[in-house]
Design a binder for these strands. Structure first.
Lengths: 204, 204
DNA sequence: GTCTATATACAGATAGAC
DNA sequence: GTCTATCTGTATATAGAC
């Protein structure tokens, strides 16, 4: 009964703390609140984590792990370039407009000056991965001989920047809700069209 | 001597509070710290502002006013489209990569859930203004007869999104310093080239 | 290992002298 | 209007019982 593995308590704490931090931010959440949310006693928090900072770092670390899985690997096995770009775009858009992803971004942007390592953790954990994936795909296009994209890094950056658009910033600022599936589709269609014209055809 | 206009105290407070909030964020700055930074006594703070929230709102409001001036009006009077786009791009890039602008964004993104009106204030104060300006310019291009840009709003959004790029997000997260003047130039050149190909030529 | 109860510091906000 | 001194709540963190 009471002999559950000790790690389950730690996991319980992290889950409760994650909910609270994502919802309210770092400073507005006290250790008392986290203890209630878990629920465990406050002393147990300090048994598993040296202090509030350490708990926060652990939470963000786990959040990055979970986001990393989501972006996983997108198969770009089709011969149809436009179709492959669509698949990549959908995965990216679905990820970044999630309430969870937006909450993580808000949290880390708010605290990155006090926790410098967290900015790196989040950036390398999601956007960097996506960029690298797209760069690899664009490389294969160049290698295939049908394209001659001059600056792969810039080309990959441009694709995701177009997909984020102003809307992502609006969502971060809370002045707009995340896009509906229909809005996402229209966005992706227009971006892919622009991209093929401005980037891929330019080097065709 | 002591008969300075009362407003100068209010201004002094706002200046001190602005420095502190931009540097450390809302929650890490206490009213004591602001009082020391101004410097005035804590009681004087409460003489001029009902509470910490009100002071914070006033600070962000003033910040938006100052940013608004910066973006002012960019003259797009040349007949050379590429040259006009360059001018708009430079003004935009110079603005958003300022340490001050980045600090404002961090601050408001962090607190927008607790201060919903501030997100709107900042968004309408800068990106919205820039977008509207560019939309107006693109309209004149369409009206001139040489272009037929189908979706003006999307086209304007795309331009600024390309200029922000991944780098702006990196700066927000503190994983990269703002770009040097040389980096800005290269960025602008490449974006304008891509843009003319993908957006303007598409409708030419 | 987990709990209740507590120590200590500092936050936002105010009273009252001048 | 501005100050010093203070009230009250709540924060992080810990001591000691079980």
């Amino acid at each position: 009964m009471t002999s559950e593995p000790t790690n389950s308590k730690r996991q319980t704490i992290i889950e409760g703390a994650t909910r609270m931090f994502l919802k309210h931010g770092y400073h507005k959440v006290s250790m008392d609140k986290i203890a209630q949310a878990a629920p465990v006693s406050k002393a147990t928090l300090y048994q598993h984590f040296e202090n509030k900072n350490a708990l926060f770092s652990a939470v963000v670390f786990e959040l990055c792990r979970s986001l990393l899985q989501t972006m996983a690997e997108i198969a770009t096995d089709s011969k149809d370039v436009e179709k492959n770009l669509h698949k990549i775009a959908e995965a990216f858009v679905d990820l970044i407009f999630t309430e969870k992803a937006l909450a993580i971004y808000r949290l880390v942007i708010a605290e990155c000056l006090d926790f410098p390592e967290l900015g790196r953790l989040v950036y390398d954990g999601v956007p960097k991965i996506a960029l690298t994936q797209l760069e690899n795909y664009l490389q294969t296009l160049n290698a295939g001989g049908h394209f001659a994209i001059p600056d792969i890094a810039f080309a990959a950056d441009a694709f995701f920047s177009l997909l984020k658009g102003d809307l992502h910033f609006q969502c971060l600022l809370g002045v707009s809700p995340p896009p509906s599936p229909e809005q996402k589709c229209r966005l992706i269609d227009r971006v892919v069209a622009l991209y093929i014209l401005g980037v891929l055809n330019a080097a065709d």
